[in-house]
C-alpha cells in the first residue's frame, strides 16, 4: 500500500505547470473516485494487480504503459465493464454519497453509465450505433433518461455536433458514412450529451493520422477544461498524456510502477522502466 500512498495527497492534483488550460477547479478535498487494491487475473495470468489511486473532480489522469501492461484491463475494471477478481472501486454520486460501484444494482449501474459516466472506445464502432443517424446516436442517452420531445433532442444533438466540429447537415447521416476522426468526435459528443462528471477513454486517438489526432486532442482538451470533466485516459502515446492529463500513472506487467504529476513524470522519470519508455520516443 505504501507505494501509492503518496498519490492521495490533497493538492497533488493541482496542475501547476500542466499545459491544460485553466478550468473551473473543484478544490474540495473529497475524491470523486477511489480505486483500492484492484486486481484482475485471467486464470493464472495477471491482468492487473493491486492497483490503487484516487481521482479528484475535474482531474485528468493518464494511464500509460506498453501493450499488455494491463491498462485496458484496469480501465474496464474501474468502469464496471469487467468485474475485478478483488479490490474495491468507490464513486461519489451526485448526492455526494460514496458508493461502491460493484455493489450497485444493475439498474443503478446502467443509469450511472449513461448519465454520470462516459466511455470513449478506441474503435468508434464499439461505442456508436453504426446503423442509426448521428443525431440519434447523440440523442440516445437523452431518450434513455426520459427526454421525449423530438425537437429538443434534435436541437441538443445539433448543438453537440457543432461543438465537436461535425457539420450540422450531417445530423441525419449514419456514422458509417463518417471518417475515422469524425466517428471519434461523434462518439465523444454521444458521451458528453448528458453532462457526465467522469469519462473513461481507451486510446481515444488510436488509429487516427497525426493531423487528425492533433485536432482531436485540441478538442478534448478544450472540452475537458470547459466542462470541468474528470477523465481517465488510457494511452500508450506519451504525447497524449502530456497534452491531456494532469497526473499520470505508469504501468508495467499489471502493476503501477510510477505515479506523479504528468510534467514531473515525463521530465524527470524516476523508475528505470519509465526512463526507458520516455527515451524510446522518436525525436523528429
Amino acid at each position: 500500500m505504501t507505494r501509492h500512498m503518496d498519490m492521495t495527497h490533497a493538492g497533488d492534483h493541482l496542475p501547476k505547470t500542466s499545459l491544460v488550460a485553466p478550468r473551473p477547479m473543484d478544490l474540495s478535498e473529497k475524491p470523486l473516485l477511489q480505486v483500492r487494491s484492484v486486481s484482475k487475473y485471467y486464470g493464472r495470468r495477471i491482468g492487473c494487480e493491486d492497483v490503487s489511486f484516487d481521482l479528484w473532480p475535474g482531474e485528468v489522469l493518464a494511464i500509460v504503459g506498453e501493450s499488455g501492461s494491463g491498462k485496458t484491463t484496469l480501465l474496464d475494471c474501474i468502469s464496471t465493464r469487467m468485474t475485478p477478481t478483488s479490490g474495491m472501486v468507490n464513486y461519489r454520486m451526485r448526492d455526494d454519497t460514496m458508493r461502491e460501484v460493484f455493489r450497485l444494482s444493475e439498474a443503478e449501474k446502467r443509469f450511472l453509465m449513461r448519465t454520470d459516466w462516459g466511455f470513449v472506445h478506441q474503435n468508434p464502432a464499439d461505442g456508436l450505433r453504426m446503423t442509426v443517424s448521428a443525431g440519434a446516436n447523440v440523442g440516445e442517452r437523452l431518450m434513455a433518461i426520459g427526454e421525449q420531445h423530438y425537437g429538443d433532442i434534435r436541437q441538443t444533438a445539433s448543438d453537440w455536433l457543432e461543438q465537436v466540429e461535425i457539420a450540422k447537415d450531417r445530423i441525419d447521416d449514419q456514422p458509417r458514412a463518417f471518417s475515422g476522426g469524425m466517428r471519434q468526435r461523434l462518439q465523444i459528443a454521444r458521451n458528453l450529451v448528458t453532462g457526465p462528471r467522469l469519462v473513461f477513454m481507451d486510446e481515444p486517438t488510436g488509429g487516427l493520422d497525426v493531423s487528425v489526432q492533433a485536432r482531436l486532442l485540441d478538442l478534448l482538451r478544450s472540452l475537458v477544461a470547459e466542462l470541468g470533466l474528470a477523465a481517465i485516459v488510457v494511452t500508450h502515446d506519451l504525447a497524449v498524456a502530456r497534452l491531456l492529463s494532469h497526473r499520470m500513472v505508469v504501468m508495467k506487467e499489471g502493476r503501477i510502477i510510477e505515479t506523479g504529476l504528468t510534467d514531473r513524470v515525463l521530465d524527470d522519470p524516476q523508475a528505470p522502466y519509465t526512463q526507458l519508455l520516455i527515451s524510446s520516443i522518436l525525436q523528429v
Binding site: 449513461r114 443525431g135 440519434a136 440523442g139 442517452r141 431518450m143 433518461i145 423530438y150 445530423i171 441525419d172
Partner: peptide, 22 residues
C-alpha cells in the same frame, strides 16, 4: 432481457427518432 429487467428502454425511442429524422 436485461434491458426489460431494468427498464432500459431508450433504444426504443431511438427507433422512433430515426423514423422522424429519415
Amino acid at each position: 432481457r436485461k434491458m426489460h429487467a431494468v427498464e432500459d428502454y431508450g433504444l426504443m425511442h431511438v427507433k422512433l427518432y430515426e423514423d422522424i429524422a429519415q
